[in-house]
Nucleic acid binder design. Sequence first.
DNA 1: GCGTTCTTTGCTCATATGAGCACGCGCAGT
DNA 2: ACTGCGCGTGCTCATATGAGCAAAGAACGC
Lengths: 325, 325
Amino acid sequence: MIESDELLSIRAAELYYEEDKTQDEIGSILALTRWKVGRLLAQAKASGFIRIEIVHPRARRLPVERRLRETCGLADAIVVSTSGVDDQEELQSRTAQAAADYLATLRPVPRTLGISWGRTLDDVSRHLEDGWASGVDVVQINGGVSLNRRAGTAASTAVTIAQKAGGHATLLPSPAILERLETKRAIESDRAVAAVLDLASGADAYLFSAGTADATSVLVDSGYLTPDDVSELVRRGAVGDVVGRYVNSNGAIVDPRLDERTIGLPLESLRAAQLSIAVIAGAAKHAVARAVVGSGLCTVLVTDEETALHLIENHPTVQDSEDHA
Amino acid sequence: MIESDELLSIRAAELYYEEDKTQDEIGSILALTRWKVGRLLAQAKASGFIRIEIVHPRARRLPVERRLRETCGLADAIVVSTSGVDDQEELQSRTAQAAADYLATLRPVPRTLGISWGRTLDDVSRHLEDGWASGVDVVQINGGVSLNRRAGTAASTAVTIAQKAGGHATLLPSPAILERLETKRAIESDRAVAAVLDLASGADAYLFSAGTADATSVLVDSGYLTPDDVSELVRRGAVGDVVGRYVNSNGAIVDPRLDERTIGLPLESLRAAQLSIAVIAGAAKHAVARAVVGSGLCTVLVTDEETALHLIENHPTVQDSEDHA
DNA sequence: GCGTTCTTTGCTCATATGAGCACGCGCAGT
DNA sequence: ACTGCGCGTGCTCATATGAGCAAAGAACGC
């Protein structure tokens, strides 16, 4: 029964899916009633013999999204299909596209959107369509405009997103990390900076990415940290950075001294936010993604299938809550 | 239109196939009429965005079979799925299984079945179920019983197939290739041998495989030919052997002198047969498969998907008919 | 500007499919 | 043997889907 029924269900599936026969026709071919065929087909599906895949760069993985939402307690999850993706480039692009799509269809439309900056966010900004919303103001939530070697990327990301929505951008005129705590305090209390930070903390939604904790980080690239600094952070458990702040696998700040010199929205504000969207893709970022999701830094995650599955596997339900400072 | 419709059809497909929504539900989600959704879905399928695959060791590829039948003018074609097959072993086994299944469901049941011998055929015999038919007599169509190193494989193949069908086996008591033409003639005219050959030429159906033209061939393994002999044959265009006879890519005999010393059914008998089933699998046998199919040696081919696609690509419609002798 | 033609849209209707149910068969306990 | 239970089977009926069609709309030439 088990054996022969399995084979029959395969034959039925071949005729149904590959030959577009009706269940009735299959019935007469295999000498079965059409109800039996229906059950065989259901059985084949249930046993996982039928694999249906949607192959398209814009395809999403709804079942994975659901699982991700459920196991990680996210308000929403966007998972892009990873099938047939050869290079990281493509994967980044697909994810950014998905994030752009998500933003564009977001309801209610946020009046102010707080964003970080970096390669990923810039990618999102470029994938957004002109007129994706009307009148969304964009605020930077962490510093880093001027020092960035690829001058203006951070600024242009914000400006592009705002322009395409017919709103205007507010930049955070400050470095990402200051060398001395006093300088940081001084800058922070500067009226212009304080106003932006204030605006940022009141944003309706946040959109940010995360960086890996290695020498390829934008913070290294921009000269805020040396590769050695990063190595030391890694030694102390850093898995990546979120809006310029290095966190360990529990999502806790790795180096409070460094963090104190970092300008921008504190991570707690992200955690408290009604809507904070993280865009994280690629195998290199699995660890940060886990930290971000596990520690409640985002309510919505946009990612690739592989990363999503990784997160589900290692269900990032925080086991130990805090780390030693 | 093209752009937005494509995206919509992907969204619809996700909801339909991955979330098991009804077209009507999708309609209300995407703000479309259910007919539009239906069309979008049809479009997605037509554009090839929906890939349905049946993952099972016994799964076949009906559409490929159809194409193979049509482009190669075969009476029937059996193509096994190659998805997720790691090793050659598995592929051989799947193909043999399919051949066994095909034999078992063959109608009308042949009264006498002519078979060759070798690893593939032996595999088929082992996959046949006991009682796969009732009263099928089996005849060997080419020599090679005694000399074979793996003693008795050829004989056991025939006997197994016959036994499982409740019929009896007739072996061809002769080497595959004789060293001297006179010996061959003498053996051929021996009453016992002649009777078997006569029986063989009158079989209702033939089942055979093909070997590659290299040192791994069973003919080398059995000591009928030396690796050097084979190299020479290859130099002269041999792509493999069929029932002990080496053919070139047009399916023509490579070395008529050698062929004259080979005992067994001539290839012309296979070509003239009402029903001759070739079982050929594996990348190494693409060339022989092409020769067999292209020169009409079989009316039915059992093979793997990869080989089938190769045959379809290089549609083996015989371009030049005969080769120089 | 106007008619023509081709495409797209929303429909009706026939068909295909799935849910739920009652029957009958086989099996075990008494 | 009898009876109760469980399972697979084939059914009825509601629902989902696809074919075909007429009208609306867009694109084009005159």
